[in-house]
């Protein structure tokens, strides 16, 4: 499974596993959205600690969740980003749309 979900006190944490590209992002998106639409958490933590690589599909995955959570004024937080993943986030200029926790579990 490419996503491990945990829900506690209104916070949904999605721990992502493996490389994120156009092919793998789909399954991750479906798993997260399924849970999110049922639970309507006020915060989504996307944990990239076990993602060794992502291309701009990862940015699409993040932006799509920001849009979804916007429907109920939820917030998206990124954590566990490696330097190369952080470079993608910076390049996309989405640092303002999401909160970034630097290297945490």
């Amino acid at each position: 499974m490419s996503v491990q979900l945990a829900y506690q006190n209104g916070v949904l944490t999605a721990r992502l596993f493996g490389e994120i590209d156009h092919h793998t992002a789909r399954e991750m998106r479906e798993a997260v959205d399924d849970a999110a639409q049922k639970l309507k958490p006020y915060r989504l933590r996307l944990d990239f600690s076990d993602v060794p690589f992502m291309d701009s599909s990862g940015i699409g995955l993040i932006l799509g969740r920001v849009r979804l959570f916007g429907f109920w004024k939820g917030q998206v937080v990124l954590c566990g980003l490696s330097p190369s993943l952080y470079k993608m986030v910076e390049l996309a200029g989405i640092d303002g749309l999401v909160a970034v926790e630097r290297r945490a579990g």
Binding site: R29, S56, G60, M88
Partner: peptide
């Protein structure tokens, strides 16, 4: 479509 960021060429360029 909605989950494509439109960043492909920007990434290639950078």
């Amino acid at each position: 479509g909605e989950d494509r960021a439109g960043l492909g060429f920007s990434v290639m360029q950078s």
